[in-house]
Amino acid sequence: MGASSLAADLAADFQLHFGAAPVVVRAPARVTLLGKHLEHYQGWVLPAALDREAVVAVALNHTGRVRLYSYDSDVMVEAPLAATGPPGAKSWMYRLLGVAAGFQQLGYALPGFDCMFGGNIPVGAGLSPAAAVASGLAFALNQLLDARLDGLALARLAQRAEYLEADHPAGLIDYVAALCGSPGHLPRLDCRTLEVELLPFDAAQYRFVLCDAGISRSRASAGYAVRHEECARGLAVLRRHYPELRSLREVTPMQLHRYRQEMGESVYRRCAFVLAENQRVELAAMHLQAGNVRALGQQMYAAHAGLRNDYAVSCPELDELVLIAQDYPGTLGACMLGGLSSCTLNLLPAAAADTFVRHVAAAYQQRRDGALVTYQAGISPGVVLIDEAELAAVAR
């Protein structure tokens, strides 16, 4: 079901369930093109919002309670507004209650609300569907409360809500992609200053194809915690010689190479990936400013090589999918998606996407003797309000 038709159905069901006309928004999925893992090292990250979306409908109910309804799974939970989640609550409920708490902590009087959500974001593909719903709720409450928070303020509010759910510091990337975008641009996040730079990107000309290798989530995320610890050890070695260093972002290649033997080869290579990936994000920003999307794609290939060889978090299935993508003449770039995802991310001219899907599916079937799941997506400008006229037009 398309996002527009889902929005109309969901708005109608909302009125049946809750007896009120809601604010309805579309909130996008997110991928990271370049800068994977760099949020841990105060680096730069280049995410993109996709037009695989969650639809979120919200209305204030003036009961002091929150009612949350998952349209796709037909599950409703209810809690007092001040709750952090009743016993046995789903993780997404904690996150959404955390968004509500964020507005209250900023001094906004929240009288209770109803929220219904659904979408077409594949679950388990690493596209952050829960973050999309949280972004949509934050955007909708911002409208309903007339809070007038800007995109970055909403992103930080939603980030704190994820912290409440996961009990660890969570990155801003999901929320910056959803809430700080602009039509015809990609956002680049500086994880030290939290500044967002909008870089030009002609969304109509390009498509992303995600290819799912079908590996387990544990394999997809294997080694991440160890890599973070190794990079911390590398920084500790460097700070013995350069005590002014605050993060790997400040390290020069010469400084890193000088103490390669002292930190050991594995730690050196993990840190080398961070330095090189920061440089790739900077180069990508220059390429986008110049309108050179093909050069952006080359940085994606280089990023995958770094994730495979230096950061050592890839696996044979993902490596093979990237090689298959490189064999297709129209592919501009490809890399592993990262996080808990078992997918690769492939950048193509829009006209080549369907043919690419057939090529990669046939090649993977031949090499791995298994069916390949693929998803296509374009670039989204971020969370948007769906007006009543659009809902009425779709309903007709």
Rank of each mutant, 00 (worst) to 15 (best):
D387P: 08
P253A: 01
V133M: 10
P200Q: 14
D51R: 02
R207T: 09
A389E: 00
V123G: 14
A54P: 08
E165G: 15
Q159K: 01
F103C: 03
A325C: 07
A138T: 05
L16A: 09
A21I: 11
A305V: 04
F14A: 13
S342C: 06
H40D: 06
L157P: 00
I215P: 15
A153L: 02
L60P: 14
R65V: 14
N120C: 15
A220D: 06
D146S: 04
Y375A: 00
V24R: 03
N292I: 00
L33S: 03
Y69V: 14
A130Y: 13
E262D: 12
E162P: 09
W92T: 10
E195M: 12
V58E: 11
L186C: 11
S182A: 13
E320D: 10
A125S: 15
P28I: 00
A371L: 04
V251Y: 12
A213M: 08
A325Y: 02
T32F: 04
N309G: 15
P349K: 03
A284G: 03
R246S: 04
C343T: 02
V56T: 06
S5V: 10
L172K: 02
R249T: 11
L198E: 05
G118T: 15
L256H: 08
Y224D: 10
Y69P: 13
V274M: 03
G19S: 13
A82K: 13
H185D: 06
E265I: 09
A362W: 02
G35D: 07
L154A: 05
S266L: 08
P316Y: 13
